[in-house]
Nucleic acid binder design. Structure first.
Lengths: 158, 158
DNA sequence: ATACGACTTAAACAGAGGTTTAAGTCAAAT
DNA sequence: ATTTGACTTAAACCTCTGTTTAAGTCGTAT
């Protein structure tokens, strides 16, 4: 099967302009053209597009993706380099997931802060008495509550 | 304690220009000034900065963070809105973590693809015989291997 | 008193990642 | 035969998120 740029774009959930932009940036050197110069995507090309979208959504800059794609077109001599590249990318992504989890934990602490404030009718329950500033021990208080609680949603959901 | 913009920036691991940029965009309306017009950060301000950095790293646009910060300065009337905002942000982040996990799974499949290719000395082991195109059943073959394996690293690490 | 370093602003600049526009080509349907 | 819709390119444009620059102010150390 051969697909036009419009069909290819729809198949992967993007638009033709984006594919042309990627092509210009060197991400699609494997795409064939017909007699009139129009891009014709073949089934195998979607394996590349899948990798491109994975890397792009993982935060890899277009330039760096181009380097990987070009390694792919250089044959078996670059197999180890391609493996190492993906191995490194795996580590980067694992770290990002961990950072996301830490952010989620912080967001949940803030949910607890606002849940308890809503229940009290005022944020002042978390202030150092006589001020409008948050008691510095608030986060520790939350951690203590969290230790005592089996289901975090009992603690943070309204 | 009162901190200059330079001290505040260092404390949170950014630089003064970024803090001025955030201020201009309405993220730091709570920061005081001294007699000479210089920003003076107080301890309580770092609670806001922590939230700002969390949301920013979670992918929330500066404009939207400004809206949240301004809700914070409008007093107890916006407590429920602030809770709902964070609750929604929690869901968004949870989804992003799941998407990251799916990407990690895909990256590991590709590691397996290259590990086996490196071991074979050629990518051709994954091609449909007589072509340079990847066998469409390759991903399914990997999933089957994965089912048979207790430790994924046996499968994908060189 | 003067020089230094850190601050102030507004405005220009930069880079990433597209999107839109203008001008044109082509194949198929009317 | 001409119109329609999808394609082509180069170039302009856009948004977001800062960073850099220029011109100036201020407090402190020498």
């Amino acid at each position: 099967m051969r697909y036009s740029i419009g069909e290819a774009a729809e198949k992967i959930g993007t638009n033709p302009s984006t594919l042309r932009f990627y092509d210009k940036k060197g991400l699609l050197p494997f795409v064939d053209r017909d007699e009139a110069g129009r891009r014709k995507f073949k089934d195998n090309d979607f394996n590349f597009l899948e990798v491109i979208q994975c890397l792009k959504k993982s935060g890899v800059p277009v330039k760096d993706i181009a380097k990987f794609i070009n390694m792919c077109l250089q044959g078996d001599g670059t197999l180890k380099k391609r493996y190492d590249y993906l191995d490194n990318e795996e580590q980067v992504l694992e770290k990002k997931v961990q950072e996301m989890q830490a952010r989620l934990d912080f967001l949940r602490f803030k949910k607890w802060y606002y849940k308890t404030s809503v229940e009290a009718g005022t944020e002042a329950i978390h202030f150092t008495p006589g001020t409008n500033f948050v008691d510095p021990t608030t986060h520790d208080q939350y951690k203590e509550k969290l230790r005592e609680t089996s289901d975090i949603h009992d603690l943070i959901d309204l």
